[in-house]
């Protein structure tokens, strides 16, 4: 075992892994993290704790991960390259390991201009760091873990033992380069990969065929990203505006139908769309897990953590393996 994390153990056991996502609040109140951790605990092997996602200030990934960990939820701390240089990164990694965290997902991070797609003020005037990129950060984690060395070469007496993750957007431009992109992250040391949210399962199958030809599915554990759709509007937005995400028309039509079935009743329209969204999610999970080379699913119920229990149970992925 590289890290001894539950996620690593589940993957080693050959069971499909389930990860979820927990978004920390824009507030110093720990209770929201506690509440979400309680909602997710037992229904996933580990949960990503986002690192100021959409470039908005929130409880830091490490602090929220430590709170979740106290609640018995295994966290995957996230670390973006946007906000820290290699000194801060390694200091945080040592600290996170000292707090007992065992999984770390390396990300470039949304650009500071993103500010929740303009829905919040954010800090578009912030200076970004990008001292290292994702590939390089993965390499730093591996060097710290496997060689007990800091990136600069200084020795580490007690090395941080992380199960190292990275993200992958198989269907973003430049699409022919995406397999190489994945290969570089894997060669740098990524033990697991979580993909961008996928609705186009035919696309995923085609891309996974390329990945299997390269043998990458044997070198890393690929978890297909599933973003739980809440509404027809959300699916349309994801299709038109989110890089690397295309949503088949049939799924948008299904959600539209659910919405229309409620007539003018907005509350009902919301309910029906959410129900349809959960149905779609379960189908996507099954299709993803049937794709050769896919070792698990990363289910993101954004600001809807309470939905995970029902989804995981209905998908036949409960109880989670005891490892």
């Amino acid at each position: 075992m590289k890290s001894g994390s539950t996620l690593e153990k589940v993957l080693a056991s050959g069971n499909p892994a389930v990860t979820a996502e927990l978004g920390p609040p824009m507030s110093a109140d720990p209770h929201e993290v506690v509440k979400k951790a309680q909602q997710l605990k037992g229904f996933c092997d580990a949960a990503n704790i986002t690192d100021c996602q959409t470039a908005v200030v929130r409880i830091s990934s490490i602090a929220a991960a430590a709170i979740a960990f106290q609640q018995g939820l295994e966290p995957v701390m996230q670390m973006t390259c946007r906000d820290r240089n290699r000194i801060a990164m390694q200091a945080d990694l040592l600290g996170a390991a000292a707090l007992g965290l065992k999984n770390c997902l390396c990300l470039a991070g949304d650009h500071q201009k993103f500010s929740a797609a303009g829905r919040l003020k954010g800090h578009p005037g912030a200076k970004n760091v990008y001292d290292v990129d994702t590939c390089q950060l993965v390499g730093i984690l591996k060097k710290m873990r496997d060689e007990s060395k800091q990136d600069g070469g200084d020795p580490i007496e007690v090395a941080p033992k992380f199960f190292i993750g990275a993200s992958w957007t198989p269907m973003a431009d430049p699409i022919d380069f995406r397999p190489i992109n994945l290969m570089k992250k894997v060669n740098a040391g990524a033990d697991f990969i979580q993909t961008q949210g996928i609705y186009d399962m035919e696309g995923l199958r085609a891309h996974m065929a390329k990945i299997r030809n390269m043998g990458l599915h044997e070198k890393t554990a690929i978890l297909a990203g599933i973003i739980v759709p809440k509404s027809a509007m959300m699916l349309k937005y994801m299709d038109s505006s989110v890089a690397g995400v295309s949503v088949p028309k049939a799924l948008i039509d299904r959600m539209n139908k659910a919405k229309e079935a409620a007539g003018d009743d907005k509350k009902k329209a919301k309910e029906l769309q959410e129900q349809e969204g959960i149905k779609i999610t379960i189908e996507l999970i099954h299709q993803a897990l049937e794709t050769p080379g896919v070792k698990g699913v990363h289910i993101q119920a954004i600001e809807w953590e309470s939905a995970i229990e029902g989804i995981v149970k209905a998908a036949g992925l409960y109880p989670r393996p005891q490892v």
Partner: peptide, 29 residues
């Protein structure tokens, strides 16, 4: 590249443009 990435594009490339603006080319593209 808006993120000074050295090893390839991030996941934000959209139709050859950078995630910061549809008027900015993605350098990695």
């Amino acid at each position: 590249c808006a993120k000074t990435l050295m090893n390839g594009p991030c996941g934000g490339t959209n139709k050859g443009k950078c995630e910061i603006s549809k008027d900015v080319d993605c350098a990695w593209y």
